[in-house]
């Protein structure tokens, strides 16, 4: 009878375990705004999925990956500052997604679920997909951890030492796009980056090595997911925002103690 809770918990965990290392990389590389842009474009994926009567989950992944590629191509090719370009694209994608979804004929318009997540309705097959993707991204991160980290620490030195920086930058963007795509169901498009960067920022307060920070961020993300679910049950809160607030609370605690 508590199947939906177990599924919700498993779904949250799937994202939480990868949020540690990936979120740390996002924080180090200052990609938070980039993550937002990807998250906002996920809405467009939903709209396209509904429109084409194609799997919405798959379309979200496809759109996120395409936007990540588009942003890589645009990088450094314009005269505007990066945050301005991301600001334009991010909100354009969000608005486009919102418009497209209301235009879907006979489509559902549970906008709140899309914007803030709907983890309690997650299905078994969605949970399986999330875990497969999450473990795949974790494996790739683990395998390429040293060169990725070297690139994030100092690009030019990494490059001189033989790390192909352009390739790893693209890899990082694509991995982020995948995780953003599967996180949408959990916290919604507006709160995805929070789940990535807040646990990482909290873990920074008491970590002395990059690996410590990555692992502890995952633990904090798992804790945020659990606390969020529990508090939403106790006080009837929306789950996604409750998870993010739990992460923020843990951040404040880490900040105060450390």
């Amino acid at each position: 009878m508590y199947d939906f809770l177990l599924l919700a918990l498993l779904a949250g965990m799937a994202v939480a375990v990868v949020a540690g290392p990936l979120g740390s990389l996002v924080v180090w590389q200052r990609m938070a705004y980039f993550g937002d842009t990807l998250a906002h474009s996920a809405l467009l994926g939903i709209a396209l999925g509904l429109w084409l009567s194609f799997g919405e989950g798959t379309m979200v992944i496809v759109v996120c990956l395409l936007v990540a590629l588009l942003l890589s191509v645009l990088e450094g090719k314009h005269k505007l500052a990066t945050d301005t370009v991301l600001g334009i694209l991010s909100h354009t994608f969000l608005a486009l997604g919102l418009v497209a979804i209301t235009m879907v004929p006979g489509g559902r318009t549970d906008m709140e679920a899309l914007l803030f997540g709907d983890i309690l309705t997650v299905t078994k097959s969605e949970v399986i997909t999330m875990w497969l993707m999450s473990l795949a991204v974790l494996a790739v991160l683990k395998y390429h951890w040293q060169p990725l980290l070297s690139m994030v620490v100092q690009e030019d030195l990494a490059s001189v030492e033989g790390v192909s920086v352009a390739r790893y930058k693209l890899l990082l963007k694509l991995l982020l796009a995948l995780i953003v795509a599967i996180s949408m169901k959990i916290v919604g498009v507006l709160l995805i980056t929070a789940l990535l960067i807040i646990p990482a920022a909290a873990a920074r307060q008491f970590s002395k090595t990059p690996e410590q920070m990555a692992v502890r961020a995952s633990l904090l993300a798992v804790a945020s997911v659990c606390l969020g679910l529990i508090s939403s049950l106790l006080w009837n809160l929306p789950v996604g925002p409750a998870m993010v607030l739990s992460a923020s609370g843990l951040f404040l605690v880490a900040r105060t103690i450390a």
Binding site: R30, V153, R204, S207, T209, P210
Partner: peptide, 8 residues
Amino acid sequence: IEPTMPLK
């Protein structure tokens, strides 16, 4: 080096 990067 990013201040957020714990690195010895």
